[in-house]
């Protein structure tokens, strides 16, 4: 495998099997994916085609059964668990379908949390959390806790949290899956803005609007990449 300059993700021959009732279910059947710096890639396909499995493998959450992944120049699964966690904390951002904010923390505290874990000084992380919440349009709701925010607002906080440690790449798994159409559109706009500013995004989605907004689409079916195209 080469380590090409500007290449953020380089996955080769990814096979992922899950044990199921004494047997192995193959979710990925030999996937090759490359993502370059500054790209926004939408991974699309029907339910159960292996989109989320691929995202988890690429992001260092779930090791593949076979194959290799280079993420930001590191052989991801050659790293030990602690090093992989540190890589995710400091250089990667995550956005989930169900937001998964800490309900007992305020919006600002949720954004501060990854910075606190990365050892960012208190004043600096407080200022940055405010900046990020301003960026996602929630500067007026910094003290609110997630249960007092709408779904769209919670996803914005989750995006701000993903940006906290200035990641080089963001992985998003069905980021609009829990949102209504209008709120989903706002999140898509936010992603587009982030991408224009240079952030690499890999978004798993079955939302056609999200896919349309991505300059590059990777289409999956039955555990395989069946198509990949760059929008002109």
């Amino acid at each position: 495998m080469t380590d090409e300059p500007g290449r953020v993700i380089e996955a080769r021959g990814i096979i992922k099997e899950y044990p199921y009732q004494g047997d192995a279910v193959r979710a990925l059947r030999g996937v090759d994916v490359d993502v370059s710096a500054g790209e926004m890639v939408a991974v699309v396909g029907p339910s159960g085609c292996g989109k989320s499995s691929l995202l988890n493998v690429l992001a260092g959450i779930d090791p593949p059964t076979r194959g290799t992944v280079r993420l930001l120049g590191d052989d991801l699964y050659g790293l030990d668990e602690g090093a992989r966690s540190r890589l995710r904390l400091r250089r990667v951002g995550f956005i989930f379908q169900r937001f998964h904010l800490l309900a007992v923390l305020s919006a600002a505290e949720n954004v501060e949390l990854p910075m606190a874990e990365a050892g960012v000084p208190k004043r600096e992380r407080r200022d940055r959390a405010r900046e990020l919440l301003d960026y996602v349009g929630l500067g007026h709701r910094t003290a609110h806790r997630p249960p007092h925010l709408s779904g769209g607002e919670q996803q914005r906080v989750a995006i701000a949290r993903a940006l906290a440690n200035r990641p080089e790449v963001i992985f998003a798994d069905e980021p609009t899956g829990e949102l209504d159409r209008r709120t989903g559109a706002e999140i898509i706009d936010l992603f587009a803005r982030l991408n224009r500013q240079g952030t690499t995004l890999v978004v798993v989605t079955h939302d056609a609007k999200v896919a349309e907004s991505a300059p590059r689409v990777v289409e999956m079916a039955d555990g395989l990449v069946v198509g990949s195209g760059v929008r002109p």
Binding site: S85, R86, R88, L89, V92, G93, F96, L102, L113, P114
Partner: peptide, 16 residues
């Protein structure tokens, strides 16, 4: 459980 899984996913160390 979801919160904890998310914390692990975003890179918070298991020990923490």
């Amino acid at each position: 459980f979801g919160e904890i899984a998310t914390l692990r996913a975003i890179g918070v160390a298991r020990g923490r």
